[in-house]
């Protein structure tokens, strides 16, 4: 054996890692493919429901509805912006594709929340769970998506559902991480106070930790939304329809116009979803402590119904007292 061989032993022999992966995957595919086909079912149902719903509602109805929702959570300014952007989507002639992409993203985010929030809560409460998650989440976020594209196709076939699954793999980590962070950031004193007054673990979670972690959890959902949108083009490589496919086809045919139209659609969708979720996160600060049904378009309905409710007179009295006390400048401490 020459000196060069000793100094570079990896030249003559190395682990047959790629062969191992091949073998494991082949074994899983031959033995468990039916299982994975069954797993598709809930994804398929939800995706179909979203797709039928979003594509079935006439565009104008959708625009008005989304506008009202935006007005409710963030005020009329954002409502106008969001409605305007949706009109642009319609004018570009990509309404159908946008709704297909949206249903894909919604399905992925729903499953990310169902899986991610409980996992995040566990990680937030247990140091050991967090240590186990960390390398897995790092891998999910950094491994190039093309690497798992093929195995997913081998197990689930092609179509929209494997597209959703690929998206979930990529978009799941932020909601887990930010939920865990939110739970950890609940002040130690609050946890101690809850315990001191006899809270069980569940009461501690649902009455203190989750409500206080809510802004952080919503930030996680927002991140998950954005990351699923960024997966749209990659997912379209396994026959997922929508805006991503427009971009992909545009690249394939060197059709810049087609690719740009699809790209703009994705950007507009991202802006709308980001603005709405951001607004949902900060709405507490904006509106103080007014109940949601007492402001925005919902207040129109509650106000209309009010005279018929039995507690209406009491409410008016309370409102009157409130006004009076505000006029007295009650933000200061009362002298004892």
């Amino acid at each position: 054996m020459s000196l060069a061989d000793i100094l570079d032993p990896f030249k003559s022999w190395h682990l047959p890692f790629s062969q191992w992966v091949q073998d494991v995957l082949t074994w899983v595919v031959t033995n468990y493919r039916p299982l994975f086909q069954t797993l598709k079912w809930p994804f398929d149902k939800l995706l179909t429901a979203f797709n039928l719903g979003l594509n079935g509602i006439p565009p104008l109805v959708t625009i008005v509805f989304v506008g009202l929702v935006a007005w409710q959570i963030a005020g009329w300014r954002l409502a106008l912006q969001v409605a305007g952007l949706l009109v642009v989507v319609g004018l570009l002639g990509i309404w159908g594709e946008t709704m297909t992409t949206l249903s894909l993203v919604f399905t992925a985010v729903v499953f990310c929340m169902i899986v991610g929030i409980p996992l995040g809560v566990i990680a937030g409460r247990s140091e050991r769970a967090a240590a186990i998650y960390r390398p897995i989440l790092d891998t999910m976020q950094t491994i190039p998506s093309f690497v798992y594209l093929v195995p997913v196709v081998m197990l689930f076939g092609i179509g929209n559902v494997p597209g959703v699954i690929v998206t979930i793999i990529f978009a799941l980590p932020p909601v887990i991480r930010l939920t865990a962070l939110g739970i950890r950031q609940v002040p130690e004193e609050v946890v101690e106070a809850m315990r001191a007054f006899g809270a069980t673990n569940n009461q501690l979670l649902f009455k203190a930790q989750l409500p206080l972690a809510l802004p952080s959890i919503l930030a996680g959902v927002n991140q998950t939304l954005m990351m699923s949108l960024s997966m749209v083009v990659v997912a379209s490589m396994i026959a997922v329809g929508g805006l991503g496919q427009m971009v992909l086809r545009g690249i394939g045919r060197l059709d810049v116009g087609l690719a740009a139209t699809g790209g703009i659609g994705i950007v507009i969708l991202a802006v709308i979803l980001d603005r709405l979720t951001q607004a949902a996160m900060s709405r507490r600060r904006q509106f103080g402590h007014v109940a949601w049904y007492r402001r925005g378009p919902a207040s129109v309905f509650t106000t209309m119904l009010r005279p018929y409710s039995p507690s209406a007179t009491q409410d008016w009295k309370a409102a009157g007292a409130e006004l009076l006390s505000q006029n007295k400048g009650n933000d200061y401490e009362r002298p004892a």
Binding site: P187, E189, A193, G198, A199, A208, L212
Partner: peptide
Amino acid sequence: MRELRARTMGMVFQNVALLPH
């Protein structure tokens, strides 16, 4: 112990630790 904490002991903290929501 939980029962005892809820019924027979009240605690006040330096930083109050009220639930803000």
